[in-house]
Amino acid sequence: MIVRIMGEGQVRLDDSHFPALNELDDELMAEVESGDTEGFRRTLAALLDAVRTMGAALPDDSLEPSELILPAPEASIAEVRAMLTEDGLIPD
């Protein structure tokens, strides 16, 4: 799957990584809902770091369609809340 991190670029991720990413996504969703800013910052950073670490960055000039778009590292709770679906940022 091709994942875009807003403001950074695209990463190719194997589907086998999604169970671990979904755990972080569920945690992030709970923190957004509760307004836990400190937890939100920590978990968003962990989620994006996991995507960067587990995936392979695509070249900047690559024009692959993104199947999943994640917020920028500096995104606010309100911005992430607007991106959430009932499954969070990452579909189950």
Results as ranks from 00 to 15, higher is better:
M54C: 04
D49I: 05
S66R: 05
G39M: 11
A82T: 09
G88M: 13
S62K: 06
E86K: 07
F40P: 00
A75H: 01
I90G: 00
E31Q: 13
E67R: 10
G35H: 13
L58Y: 05
P73H: 09
S62I: 08
M1V: 12
E74N: 07
A57L: 12
D15Y: 12
E33T: 03
T37K: 03
L28T: 05
V11L: 09
A82C: 13
D14M: 09
D26I: 00
R12E: 14
G55H: 07
G35I: 12
N22K: 14
P73L: 04
T43M: 05
A82Q: 15
G55K: 13
E79D: 09
G7Q: 04
E27S: 10
L44K: 08
E79W: 01
V80N: 04
I90R: 00
L84E: 09
T53N: 04
L28V: 04
V11Y: 14
R4D: 10
A72G: 10
E38D: 05
L44T: 01
E79Y: 01
A56W: 13
R81P: 09
Q10E: 09
A75E: 03
E38G: 02
T43V: 10
D87M: 05
A50I: 09
I5G: 02
R81W: 12
D25Q: 07
A75D: 15
D61S: 15
V32D: 03
P73V: 00
M29G: 04
E27H: 06
V51P: 03
L48G: 02
L48E: 02
P71T: 08
A20L: 09
P71D: 07
L89Q: 12
D26S: 02
G55D: 15
R81L: 07
P59I: 06
D60I: 05
E33W: 11
N22M: 06
G9C: 11
L44E: 07
E86A: 11
V3P: 05
S62C: 15
D60H: 07
G7K: 06
A56E: 15
P73N: 07
R41L: 07
S16N: 01
L44R: 07
D15L: 06
D26L: 05
P91H: 10
P91I: 09
D15R: 10
Q10G: 13
A20T: 10
L24P: 05
L47H: 13
G39R: 01
M6K: 08
E33D: 03
D49F: 08
A45C: 12
L44S: 03
L89F: 07
L70Q: 06
E67W: 13
I5N: 02
A75C: 03
T37H: 11
L24A: 03
A57C: 02
D15Q: 11
L13F: 03
A72E: 12
A46C: 01
V11E: 05
L48V: 00
M1C: 07
V80H: 10
P71Q: 12
L68Q: 04
